[in-house]
Amino acid sequence: MTFDEVVAIIVRSLMISGSATALASVWSIPTAMKLVMSDSRASRVLIDVSNALTSMPTVILGLILYLVLSRSGPLGSLGILYTPIAITIGQSLLITPYIISLTVSLLFEKRREVWETALSLGATRWQAAATAVKEGAAQLITVMLIAFNRAIGELGVALMLGGNIKGFTRVMTTAIALEVSRGDFSLALTMGGALLTLTMLIAITTRLVSKIL
């Protein structure tokens, strides 16, 4: 594997998992807000379901989505199986329960100190929830970071939906798996080291950024 190829794989991984995290945040954070706000029995059950779904094996999610996106599946006409966008969708679904669960626990924590104060100052419920989210922005970034790390480090979805196609859907984890199967342990370990270094750098950067916020 050439150096250019490795760089391309790293950039591709960042783009796919980054967009998956952004996409999942769009529906997960408001969902978490809604769940905390309503505080009904139904929402508690939903929070339990979300917590349980964090244990979803990536290959099972990959298989389910494969059957949906396959040419003979219900969404086969879209023709997105074995493309980067399929991995993005799969990973965004994979990390949805993570973001919901972590945001919910973050909001419950912020609830007393920020939320209720905001309410007492005459805010609407959504405004109060949004204030709590904003007050917890630093932790929320950590939540998204954990979700991103889960996405970039997973193998099952990327392999089932992407197919590990060279120069197209090959991401870091599938490249590592391929090198192991090819018997090139040193290249696999190098890629693994690159993946860890990368996530660590991102973690440090976000910590510094969230300090400024």
Binding site: M15, L121, A130, T131
Partner: peptide, 29 residues
């Protein structure tokens, strides 16, 4: 007071840009 819709718009825009970049790259390749 924080306006909730501003938060959603920011998040959505961010996601759209990111997904758009993936689709664009896919299209190029």
């Amino acid at each position: 007071m924080t306006q909730p819709h501003r938060l959603f718009i920011t998040l959505t825009l961010l996601a759209l840009i990111a997904v758009g970049a993936v689709i664009y790259q896919q299209y190029l390749t």
